[in-house]
Amino acid sequence: MSEVSLFDPVRNGLDKNFRLTNCTKLKGCGCKVPQEDLMKLLEGLGQPDGEGMGIGLDSCVMKTKIKGVFLIQTTDFFYPLVNDPYMQGKIACANVLSDLYAMGVEHCDNMLMLLGVSSQLSKKEKDVVTPLIIKGFNDLCIEAGTSCNGGQTVINPWFIIGGVASAVTMKEKFIMPDQAIAGDVLVLTKPLGTQIAVNAHQWIETQQWEEFESLVTKEQIKSAYLAAMYSMARLNKTGAKLMHKYGAHGATDVTGFGILGHIQNLARAQKESVSFVIHSLPILDHMDVVASKAADNGLNFKLREGFSAETSGGLVVILSKDKAELFCKEIEEIDKVPAWIIGDVVPGSREASISPDMKVINVLHNNTL
């Protein structure tokens, strides 16, 4: 991996104070409708007959009219959360593809791009920023082994970037997320704390920074921001591939509902009467203390409670205990980043919780891509 040259507004002919994140008041997957509200809104929508999966988890799994062939499909979009337009495009693409990877689907047959160009921008800003976002999205499509072949572009008050990912595959090429058994463990493939990092990075240019400067330095915040950005732009493709190699019993990806929100959803889908207990939370270094101080000031990200929104987060993979460490080791060998065993599958009533003895794992920053 090598250092990336980040976006400089002045070098691109824009005002030195231009910030892409000023084009929205919500960031990334923090824009999601709350989980309980969403489930109520979606009541009554159809579910597939027989094999397959409809609304509720990461992707829909639908039988096609061709015997033995399934369509795996998902969509996602959100608002800017980093100031580098190119990296924002990559993050949006990685986020959409993660829903396929959570099903153990290693390939994507087609991507559609959804783009809302902010009406707040001047013509010059649109002409500079929009092509970079598109290029970032398309470059990560190529890295993932797919291509973008259409979509929709509109004018919108806030910038929107996302897409639709589709894969046509046979049953043995995807893994349904409902096979957990007592004694399994949960593995997480990316650290938490991205939403705190991108917010804190914006605070260092405001008076709000005074509330945090005794706890953390601007350099530490900038390092965490870069680590979050690179993590969000990294594909979960390796995890999807290794799910097959190590016989995963299911997975989900971590986005706007927070790690506990997504694991609760995963628990409800299980065939066996089991529950999930989280015993460790890997968090980007310094973000735990920033989140704690923010909560004292009335802005509670609920990081330790498991409900802090993440964008393009890692996979939570259900694995047998004897294979989990091998999975983590191979992820690190291939992607040069760690993965962690964070929880246990126990007999229960399809619920998820965080252990009272939960420990925080401080994840040091690897600011390369």
Rank of each mutant, 00 (worst) to 15 (best):
E213M: 09
S118L: 03
E325L: 14
L364Y: 15
I341Y: 06
E333S: 11
A267M: 08
G68Y: 09
L319N: 02
I134M: 11
A182E: 14
T252L: 01
T255E: 02
K237G: 00
K32Y: 15
F77D: 02
T146P: 03
T130P: 01
L20K: 10
K135A: 08
E172N: 15
T217K: 07
D127P: 00
E272N: 10
L192Q: 08
L299G: 00
G136V: 02
H279S: 11
V216S: 06
V61M: 10
V363M: 04
F137S: 02
V117K: 13
G116W: 03
D253M: 12
K241E: 11
K222I: 13
V363A: 08
L188R: 01
S166R: 06
P131M: 07
T311Y: 04
S122W: 01
I263C: 11
P9T: 00
M62C: 08
K218Y: 13
L112N: 14
S353Y: 14
L315R: 14
M103K: 14
N366M: 12
A352R: 10
E106F: 11
L188H: 03
S166W: 01
Q208Y: 13
G116A: 04
N366T: 13
E272M: 01
G183R: 10
V274Q: 07
N17R: 09
G256E: 02
I283R: 03
C29A: 15
A233Q: 03
D178R: 05
T255N: 08
V117Q: 14
M39I: 13
F276G: 03
L42H: 13
A324R: 09
S98P: 06
D99N: 10
F212N: 02
V128A: 10
G50P: 00
F301P: 00
M111D: 01
S312Y: 03
A144F: 14
T74D: 09
Y230V: 06
E219A: 13
G56D: 02
